[in-house]
């Protein structure tokens, strides 16, 4: 697997969340995602960017294109230096909310991508890394 250039975007306002959606849409189109696949990854990015802004006090997104013999995927890495999440399992469960959204932000985003990893601890900030592949590139 080879990786292509990385694009970095700031996430410090809700206007920049809109910018994240647009950049992720462009990356998904370039990687050959179908309209449904684009919509899923853009929606996941929207949730995660809001999480970075609201809970992490702002941060940034790195978009990386991944090449495999059977297709291209995209990796999104959201980083913040906020307070971190003490209880990840609870944060990922449905119905957990700190007042924004329906409490489906993190858990919902996880259901829209093929790979989801979260690295966080109180005082250490949070990094959420997700990878999305189009159908066929990842075994269906």
């Amino acid at each position: 697997m080879t990786t292509a250039a990385v694009t970095t975007l700031p996430i410090t306002s809700d206007l920049e969340i809109a910018g994240v959606r647009q950049a992720v849409r462009e990356a998904a189109v370039a990687a050959g995602f179908s309209l449904v696949e684009q919509t899923k990854v853009v929606t996941a990015a929207s949730e995660l960017a809001r999480n970075t802004l609201v809970h992490g006090g702002g941060g940034r997104l790195e978009i990386t294109r991944l090449d495999r013999p059977h297709g291209q995927g995209i990796r999104l890495r959201f980083r913040d230096e906020g307070p971190g999440i003490a209880d990840v399992e609870t944060a990922l469960s449905d119905g957990y909310t700190t007042g924004h959204g329906l409490g489906l932000g993190l858990g919902g985003a996880r259901r829209l991508v093929q790979e989801f990893a979260i690295d966080t601890a109180p005082g250490r900030g949070t990094t959420v890394t997700v990878t999305a592949w189009p159908r066929g590139a990842w075994g269906g």
Binding site: V36, K40, T43, D94, L104, G108, A109, R111
Partner: peptide, 13 residues
């Protein structure tokens, strides 16, 4: 739109 409906259902929204 269909992709929006599909995505919402997948998320559980």
């Amino acid at each position: 739109r269909p992709p929006v409906a599909i995505t919402m259902v997948e998320m559980g929204l």
